[in-house]
Amino acid sequence: MIEFASVRKEYPGGSVAVEDFSLTIPSHAVAVLVGSSGCGKTTLLRMVNRMVDPSSGTVSIDGVDVRSMDPVKLRRSIGYVLQAGGLLPHRTIADNVATVPVLEGRSRRQARKDALGLLERVGLDTALADRYPAQLSGGQQQRVGVARALAADPNILLMDEPFGAVDPIVRDQLQTEMRSLQAELGKTIVFVTHDIDEAFALGDEVLVLRKGAEIAQRGTPAEILANPADEFVASFVGAGSARRTLRIREVGGRSVVVDGDDRPTGVLAR
């Protein structure tokens, strides 16, 4: 369980990234923070592993204030996935995945062996293990990033726009795989994105943020789609747009779902 209690972050120079934010994320749930760039969502994420310390308020994990923990130990116990992986360019894929276990004192040999298992788990061919990050596609690098985050078997995963740099088709694929991975692993995940569709695709709970990390609406994807709290949320999710207003048309005995422009998007399952 991750708890934000009235956190505020003011950077030197007076810009306020987070005004006053409180939230409890239950264990094993996926919470998605969604908002446009500069809304403070990444700052919130980084408070969890102390890459950023709040100016006031507390962040706690399972009831323990993170500020009482050593930042390096804390970070090693939490998986973190960055955009484009943030991999070390001068180390092989296997060494990248094995970084934290090796830092924690596991033998290099064992860590590399475990790394191969993790690569398979995120859908990568183990033949890639001895390549360098620059030799992989963006989607593959992203998978390595996920494998690296899982290497220390953390309970918590922080994901900072992890799929932002890959093309839409690969992104869909990665999202689908992430859902099945999560079904298997049941981690507590905080996921940051600016893409509302990604938020709906992955989140158990979605938080739409305005500037200063003010929560505009909080709910399941369905709740937010059904009842946007206000104008801001409505326009952010595109409520009322052709894409979001679906109707059913009967065609050849099947119910075809069409959007506001009458373009078919699918059929109702029988």
Binding site: K73, S77, I78, L88, P89, V100
Partner: peptide, 17 residues
């Protein structure tokens, strides 16, 4: 690359490492 350094810090490398 700042992203690489950020990544290293995020996974728990110490400043010296």
């Amino acid at each position: 690359d700042r992203l690489v350094i950020g990544g290293a810090r995020a996974i728990g490398m110490t400043e010296r490492q």
